[in-house]
Simulated assay, not measured.
Amino acid sequence: MPASPSLLPLSAIVTRLRAAGCVFAEDEARLLTSTAMSQSELAAMVDRRVAGLPLEHVLGWAEFCGLRVVVEPGVFVPRRRTEFLVAQAVRLAGPGAVVVDLCCGSGAVGVALTAALEGAQLHAADVDPAAVRCARRNVGPVGGQVYEGDLFGPLPAALRGGVDVLAANVPYVPTGEVGLLPPEAREYEPRVALDGGADGLDVLRRVAGAASRWLAPGGCLLIETGERQAPGAVEAFARGGLAPRVAVSEELYATVVIGTRPVDSP
């Protein structure tokens, strides 16, 4: 069990976190205290958080869809809004679904889908070696495979035409707006996981253009994007031969574009 770090009172941690600008200082203090195994570890964790590191990088994990997902330094932190993408995918898939988590980061989306879909077969890929290493820690225990490479490039050819759910949490921040992101993202998460090109849709267009060759008839591509980018995303899905629609969660401020490969498509 974690040691009780009584030499560093909770109130003192809260005060330091609040002074550093942490909005949810009380909650963060409790998480740090419950995670630290010793007084010295707690002090070091508080120092890292006060210095601006994302809470999840300090803890070494993030909560996502009710699961504890390993998140290593330098890896994109899964956002709560992306739980909406997972929920949409679960509604569309059945037991034994073949799932691909593209631009997987920590592998959080794929692991959450595997937990929700009985007998799902999970494959995940990312171009960032650090993300691949982290994803393997999460995906391996659920029986999935993680590949390193650009988008569909490293996936096994046997998956072509057989993917039921293709979830792609692509980078979609326009290049000119990356500098406006909070420091936690801008300074500690990889730019390749954030920067989506001039209009934020560069990677999305590439995925949408190739997805139909990988999806099974009736299979679905799901991509999170910004609300103002949804029309452009819909256009890219349609050009890729997919039947697109948009799902929105006002509660989570989430927009997901869903494209279905027609059953009668070649």
Rank of each mutant, 00 (worst) to 15 (best):
L242I: 06
Q229F: 01
F237N: 00
E187I: 02
G226Y: 01
A168F: 05
G196T: 14
R239M: 06
P244H: 01
R245E: 14
P183Q: 08
A193M: 13
A198I: 09
I223N: 02
D199T: 02
R191E: 14
L221Y: 03
R186E: 15
E177M: 10
V192R: 11
G240K: 04
V203K: 05
T175L: 08
G176N: 06
D195A: 14
A236D: 07
D202Y: 00
T175C: 06
F237G: 01
R205I: 08
R206S: 07
P174L: 09
A236C: 02
E227G: 02
P244Y: 05
V173R: 07
R245H: 13
P244G: 01
C220V: 15
W214C: 13
A193H: 11
G176Q: 09
E235D: 12
P182K: 02
Y172P: 02
G219V: 12
G200A: 08
V246E: 14
A198H: 07
D195F: 02
P183H: 08
E227R: 11
G241E: 13
L204N: 05
N169A: 12
G240R: 00
G241R: 11
A243H: 07
P182V: 05
G219E: 10
V207P: 03
E184K: 02
A211M: 10
I223D: 09
G196Y: 06
A168D: 02
V207C: 08
R205V: 09
R206G: 01
G176H: 03
P231M: 04
T225I: 13
P217S: 09
